[in-house]
Design a protein around this nucleic acid. Sequence first.
DNA 1: TTGTGTTTTATTGCCTCC
DNA 2: GGAGGCAATAAAACACAA
Length: 332
Amino acid sequence: MASRRVVYGGGSNGSNMNTVLLQNQRFPCSSSEPLDSLFNSGSSPSFLGSRSMVSFEFVNKGNSRSDRSFFHSFEQEENGDEDLEEYFHQPEKKRRLTADQVQFLERSFEVENKLEPDRKIQLAKDLGLQPRQVAIWFQNRRARWRTKQLEKDYEALQANYDSLKADYDNLLKEEEKLKAEVLQLTDKLLVKEKGTGNLDLSETNKQCKTLPQEPCADSVSEGEVSKVMIMPCKQEDLSSAKSDVFDSESPHYTDGGVNHSPLLEPGDSSYVFEPEQSDLSQDEEDNLSNSWLPPPSYGFPKIEDADYPSPPTNSCYFGFPVEDQAFGFWSY
DNA sequence: TTGTGTTTTATTGCCTCC
DNA sequence: GGAGGCAATAAAACACAA
């Protein structure tokens, strides 16, 4: 453990001086075959030999960072030892990698973001860095990469949420519209019945079949038919009937007061839609499924509470198979 | 020039794996 | 137990507005 906690940074001792010399000797002259392939050898003047140190400055022209690079400093050595001396005797300071070193590391990272020991050594040699510096660079680079991935995940989830929310809003509107329509038809029926004072019994039986929980006209005398017929047509009963449709076609949620939903089964997105259990179209099912995702700041549909399944209590529930798109990035 | 925010390099402590 | 990975963090380097 202690062996990897070595501080290798610049210092006033001679060892660091050796390091810097190594950096200036190795990197511009590198001819490491596997790593050369990472660079477009023709485009980088960095590998043209020792004279390319001048070219380095040329490449990094306008980059203030490179003005303080090892190479720039070393280049000045030709003009005198004073600057070099001053450079080597700087107090321990962080030194940023040159643009070329970073570019080299970036390309290597693109190839493989994990660093095997051999590759680390090779990279270190080619770049004139300490192996630990290479390791640290990769570690920090991976951290940055993960941060970026998180941002992407967040954006994807946000988009998904917005889409579901829009669907949910549309469903609510549609529901209101249908309710109004039912109300209108009910009123018409009432008026009609009051006008005639008579009813077709067969028609009544049809109604009862769709509402099995209500007393059936078969067991009711004809004189009571009108009453029976009208009962389910009250607003709340119609809603109840509507809920029955939901209940019979949707997964069941009641279990001794505990809300259970196949939709909540973590990691089992295949259970979300069960075509053979439903007569609804896929779109309708989609809408129904989506309607189970009340956002935190969102009111759950205010249809009859008793008949409408409660929203999932599982806080991990997102209503869509998140794992399919968002969390497959992590390789660690 | 200076204050401030961001990025990059490096350290520390903890965890996991072999 | 050593090696290596990670998160959290420090601190130097850098960018940029005022």
